[in-house]
Amino acid sequence: MKGLTPIVKKIAQLMCGMIFIYGIYIVVHGHLTPGGAFAGGIILAGAFILLILAFGSEVIKLRKEESGSSVSESLSLLVTLILASTGLLIGSKVFFKNFLPPGQIGQLVSAGAIPLYNILIGIEVAAAIITIFLALIIFKEEEEQR
């Protein structure tokens, strides 16, 4: 896939980092402010989509990125399940037990395990959306080569 004009590339370079940091902010502050794993994950995916659309890439590199994103998607879901079943192992006999101390309301480190779930599912959502997008682009490129 070819990239766009230099103006678009420069603007995308400048904007991408800010969008990425905003997405990380939304994910990490999910238990304090509006947002959370689902919103922040899609914003993170949006930063990647902006870069891919602006700069373009070759099919081989896109393949590599796709395998990476699908591996991180599966891994984060697996770690979520392990974290959820930790409550069973600790002895409370409840799946999805919030076993960490809740802390003080309004602090960044509070709410027990909820920020961890937020971060993990944020990675999962971002990776899933990137995987879908990359699959569509790779399909288009391969059809054009044929």
């Binding site: 689902f38 994950g41 959502v125 899933a128 959306i129 879908i132 699959a135 569509l136």
Partner: peptide, 24 residues
């Protein structure tokens, strides 16, 4: 609804993938 919106994106992307496959 918060989770359902994200699922909606994924399912409509899946429908579009099937549509483009049929078109090709």
């Amino acid at each position: 609804v918060l989770t359902a919106i994200v699922i909606g994106l994924a399912t409509s992307a899946m429908l579009l993938a099937i549509a483009i496959r049929l078109y090709k």
